[in-house]
Design a protein around this nucleic acid. Structure first.
Lengths: 359, 359
DNA sequence: CGCATATTGAGGTACGCACCTCAAAAATGC
DNA sequence: GCATTTTTGAGGTGCGTACCTCAATATGCG
């Protein structure tokens, strides 16, 4: 049997109340006594039973995940992954609420954040572009003692408690090596597409991509980024135009969303499977395109892990506990047709299973 | 507040004892009453608090992980990851014991498994080659009601409850595309190394590799597999000899272990960084070699995830609970120099942090 | 030494649930 | 309608910990 607080008390020759004071860092214990208790803990190899502890604390964790209200497949998948993870986590006293904000309205977002009930929330996860208004809003939350973690896209200047997502510069570098090697080093030209050239993640991906291309594949000519503004129409326009002017285009690096518009455009131009196409995020569309050979490689992050990590991190922050850095590290995954994971991923049937189990 | 059993009882108009009987599938309740309770549960959205339930059951999970006693870096890393995961899981009433067996002695392994205390264990994770003796031993364990999961290398004919690891054929295919594309399709020759040509995982990797190479890269000539028997000396010998006879060798696919011996051999032959080298498992050595450019790509599985998954699966099996397939899916990861995850991975400091938190 | 203050002990309640017993009530068979 | 069986209720105990109160010591200081 594992030792309990009672064993500690006996071993240390003190009362249970004292052990409790030491364990929970309550005041009114002499250093000497504290040491005695800690020694006993070490001797017996006591490990606090977190399940019992949380029960006794009757601690529960109401958390909010705030996402832009776009119809982008990526955001939708992320929302799904989060709500799945939330369902599962419900058995561990975690309650997750998903909130959405109008994507182009930082003030609405700030208002939403400011309007979160003052108490009752244990933490907030946030995926949003860093604007001055948002910075203040996040600072406000943190001033109220609410942990805030940035999701997918970092908010380094807001004082957020943690960032959950990939290193976008490394992701860009990864895209770079793949592109360079897949094209055999050149010669040829490579198009780069981004939703917005101002967004931090786009900038970083481009930077990483360029680093590698310049250093390792000087024979390839990387063109200026094209902005799609998240619009399929714009994407089609700029890509069509560009490809008309660039005779020897051999690759496309799509840093932002719009895989559907891209593959469609290439299809129309009769270029499907003729170019090396690398994009980000394994959305259902990217999957299909990968299977069909219309996209060569996808750089992605596992949304299931991301969602679960979010809950774990928020909880750890709420409890003021340290993180397991290794576990919370989100990997930059490379997906080719050949290592495409089977479909049931952040799917619905896991939810079904869970519900069934609870019933 | 989340509803509790008491709320269910009130809502269903029955006593607490009856709710309990329904929840825990105890006999002696009329169907009509069962339905009433389940309806109440649905109406209130009740979710059983697993932490409290486990506490009340005073359920604890003694588990064993059985690994071959080799000094291979991969097995060592796996052992480390498992013991790390075990440390962390100790706070949730899980106790993991690591056992080792002499790698070439299936009978010793069988004896070890048969000798596990009849009760007291909640499950066993096992990494071992599938031999007839082992098959019987595993069947014996399962007959005793002990869940068994296969680790890293599957044991399909033993009736194991679950397999935790990657699809080796898909891994081989992945290696294939990478090799093919990195070499620009040929011409040239590719060496394949495996520790043993009989081991199931080697066979499957080779099969996947060949599938892709034959179909997509007919210009590349894939040579017969060379057997290293897990010995660095043998590896050096066969590789040196082969390279002397093959004028246009451009790539090496190392399916098994021995990365250290391989990079050393290539170094000696003055071929470092001149060949496209793809191998498996991101061991410390593979890391270094990747950083130095001596290895081009590593196909790997995240040992941290693997270890945590093992514990989760064993626990779910012990509780007869369904799995979250998405979460337990082990990804085939592709690691290049550019997306090499930062070092602190299945490291020691996470252990320190945890210990500190408990103190 | 005597007093104020700091430290410790004893004991209780609660968290949400599992599991047990015994008696009461309801349903069933004849 | 009675005996029998099945179903239900009431109540208790325990899991390991948190957190509280009040009294009993111990310690430090003048």
């Amino acid at each position: 049997m594992r030792p309990t607080v009672i064993d500690i008390a006996r071993e240390a020759g003190v009362s249970l109340a004292t052990v409790d004071r030491v364990l929970n860092a309550r005041p009114g214990v002499r250093d000497k006594t504290i040491k005695a208790v800690n020694d006993a803990i070490a001797r017996l190899g006591y490990v606090r039973d977190l399940t019992a502890a949380n029960l006794a604390r009757s601690r529960s964790y109401r958390m909010a995940a705030v996402l832009p209200d776009t119809e982008s497949q990526f955001v939708q998948s992320l929302a799904l992954a989060l709500s799945d993870a939330g369902q599962v986590a419900a058995t561990t006293r975690i309650e997750l609420t998903l909130l959405r904000f109008p994507p182009e309205d930082p003030h609405a977002l700030a208002a939403l954040l400011a309007g979160l009930p003052d108490s009752g929330y244990a933490g907030v996860a946030l995926m949003a572009p860093e604007t001055p208004v948002l910075r203040d809003a996040v600072r406000g939350l943190r001033a109220r003692g609410l942990p805030v973690v940035a999701l997918v896209s970092d908010l380094p200047n807001t004082g957020r408690d943690h960032f959950i997502g990939i290193d976008n510069r490394a992701a860009g570098r990864t895209a770079g090596v793949l592109m360079g090697r897949f094209l055999g080093g050149g010669p040829g030209q490579v198009l780069v597409l981004g939703s917005s050239l101002l967004a931090r993640d786009m900038v970083e991906r481009r930077r990483g991509f360029d680093e590698v291309m310049l250093r390792d594949f000087p024979g390839l000519d990387v063109l200026q980024s094209l902005e799609t503004h998240g619009s399929g129409r714009t994407l089609r326009q700029v890509v069509t135009e560009m490809l008309a002017n660039v005779p020897d285009a051999r690759g496309i690096y799509a840093m932002g969303d719009g895989q559907r518009a891209l593959t469609q455009t290439l299809e129309e131009l009769g270029l499907s499977s003729k170019l090396t196409v690398i994009c980000h995020e394994l959305t259902p569309h990217a999957r299909t395109a990968l299977e069909r050979g219309e996209i060569t490689a996808v750089i992605t992050q596992n949304l299931g892990h991301l969602a679960r990590s979010t809950l774990r991190v928020l909880r750890a922050k709420a409890d003021n506990q340290p993180l397991d850095a290794g576990q919370e590290q989100i990997r930059i995954e490379i997906v080719l047709r050949e290592n495409l994971p089977p479909r049931p991923d952040s799917s619905v049937d896991s939810t079904l299973e869970t519900t069934e189990a609870a019933a």
